[in-house]
Design a protein around this nucleic acid. Structure first.
Lengths: 246, 246
DNA sequence: AGGCGCTTGTGAAGGCGTGCACAAATCGCG
DNA sequence: CGCGATTTGTGCACGCCTTCACAAGCGCCT
C-alpha cells in the first residue's frame, strides 16, 4: 500500500512532515518504547526485533509492530528495527528534540521532590521556573532554581517560552493556578492535585492522582481476598500477566 | 429516605457478597466518583443526580450511571443517589474500609515526599513503614516514622500485615525491591521507577512514570504547533474535552 | 543465483468501552 | 388518586483497540 519512498524525512530541521494522527493508545506507549530503546542503545545493540523490544517494554509484539507502523516507521524485514533511527523517530514525534521548558507551581512536599526529579532533565525537559503563593517560600533555592512568586508567572512564562506547567499545589488552589497558567500562555498542564480542572478546549490536561492509584490496587486486594475465601477455590491463576523485563 | 429492599446488602460484616467483576475502566473511575462524593458530602448535600455527580467528577452522565449500575447501586429514580449511601458502597467495593497498611521503599527525593503525602492518610491508607538500602538513611525520622533497612522488610511486613508496597527507588534497584516485596507477601505494588517489573501473576502492579506524562503532553504540544503552522488553518477548536486517565 | 529462515507490516475478527435514546420508576402536587 | 415532571437504569449501535494469522520482503548461506 504505502510507497516505499518515505518522502518526508523527519530527521531534524526542514519542513514539518504531514503529521500522523496516531491513536491515543499508541501515543501513550511511545514513551515506554523510547525508554526501552535508550536502555538497549546503552548496551550496544544496533538493532532490535519487535519481539525483543516488546518484551523490554512490557507489551505484546503485534501491538508494538502496529504502533510503529502507524508512525510510518523504519524496520527491516528479517532483521528488525535500527535502534538509533527509531530513537530519533520517536523523539521527533514526541517533540522531545526541542528540550521543552517546564514550570512548576507549588513547592510543597511533592513539588519539592518534583523540582529535583532527575528523570525530567534526563528525558527531554528543563524545569526552568518554580512558583509558589507563600511569601515564606519565595526566594528559597531548590536545585539551583529560585522560587518565585506566582504573580510573576505571566512575565516569566513569556520570557522563557514556557508551554508546559505542572501543578503541585493543594486541591483548593489548583483551579486558580490552572487559570493563571492558561492566562500565561501555557497549553499543557500536568496536574497532581486531586479534583477536576476546567480549562479551555485547546489546553491539554493530564492528571496524576497518587491516592487513586492506591485505591485501584486496594480494589484488587479486596477482590483477591474475597476470591480466596470463596468456595470456588480458584486461588490465583487466570489472566493476569505482567510482562518481562531486562 | 431508604425505602425499598435490595436483596443482597453488602454493607460490611457478614457474608462476602457475590463480588461483581467490574470493567477495569469503571474501577479506575470509582475513586474519582468517591472524591467528588466526599466533596459533596462536606457541602451538606443529601442526594445527587447523575448529572451533578458526573459534572463534579468530570465525566459523561451516561457513563456514570452505567458505572454505578455495574455495582448494583442504589439510586432513586426521580431523585438521584443518596450521597452517604453511595460513599459507603464505593468504599466497600474498593476495600477502603479496611484502612490498608502500605509500606514505602526508597526514601530519596520522591520517596521523602510520598512519605509525607497527606492524601494517602486522608483517603484510606496508612503508611506504616519506610525502607531504604542506604545505611545513612536508616534511622532517619520522617513524618513520625523511622526509616528501616530493607533487610527488615520481610519481618515488618508480616508484623504489620502489609499487602501494598510502593517503590520509589532508582530504576536500577526497582526489580530487586519488587522481588523482596513479593517475597514478603506483598500482592500489590505501586511503582514510580521507570522500567518494567516482572512479578508473579497473582501480584498486581501499577506504574506511575512522571516523565512519561510529560512526554505525552509534549507530543500534543508538538502536534498543536505543527497544526497552527499548516495551511489547513484550524486553529484549535474541536473536540478536546478534559483530562485523561492513566 | 536460488532457496531458506527470519521478521516486518497489515487485513480481518473479536472484545471492550462509550454515548445515545428511551422505557421504567418514583416523587410531589392538585 | 391520578398526572406530570424528573431521573435512573439499560438495550443498542458505533468506534477504538487488541490480537491473531499470514503474506511480503530481506539477508544469508550454499
Amino acid at each position: 500500500m504505502s510507497q516505499q519512498r518515505h518522502g518526508s524525512t523527519p530527521g531534524e530541521a526542514g519542513g514539518v512532515p504531514a503529521f500522523p494522527d496516531l491513536p491515543e493508545a499508541t501515543i501513550a506507549r511511545l514513551p515506554e518504547y523510547l525508554r526501552a530503546l535508550h536502555h538497549l542503545a546503552e548496551t550496544g545493540a544496533e538493532t532490535v526485533s519487535s519481539e525483543g523490544l516488546a518484551a523490554a517494554a512490557g507489551v505484546n509484539s503485534a501491538k508494538l509492530r502496529k504502533d510503529l507502523s502507524h508512525l510510518g516507521s523504519y524496520g527491516t524485514r528479517g532483521v528488525g528495527y535500527d535502534v538509533a533511527l527509531l530513537v530519533a523517530q520517536i523523539e521527533f514525534i514526541l517533540g522531545l528534540d526541542e528540550n521543552r521548558a517546564v514550570c512548576l507551581v507549588g513547592v510543597g512536599n511533592l513539588g519539592h521532590a518534583l523540582a529535583g526529579y532527575a528523570g525530567f532533565a534526563s528525558r527531554g525537559f528543563r524545569v526552568v521556573a518554580l512558583f509558589d503563593a507563600d511569601p515564606n517560600k519565595v526566594g528559597e533555592q531548590i536545585n539551583g532554581l529560585n522560587v518565585q512568586h506566582i504573580d510573576d508567572l505571566r512575565r516569566v512564562a513569556a520570557e522563557e517560552s514556557i508551554t508546559i506547567g505542572v501543578i503541585a499545589t493543594p486541591p483548593g488552589t489548583a483551579q486558580m493556578v490552572a487559570d493563571a497558567l492558561v492566562a500565561a500562555g501555557v497549553t499543557s498542564i500536568l496536574n497532581f492535585a486531586p479534583g477536576v480542572l476546567s480549562v479551555p478546549a485547546n489546553v491539554d490536561v493530564r492528571k496524576v492522582d497518587l491516592a487513586i492509584e492506591l485505591q485501584i490496587l486496594s480494589f484488587h486486594e479486596h477482590r483477591k481476598a474475597s476470591l480466596t475465601s470463596l468456595p470456588g477455590g480458584r486461588s490465583a491463576a487466570a489472566d493476569n500477566q505482567e510482562a518481562v523485563g531486562s
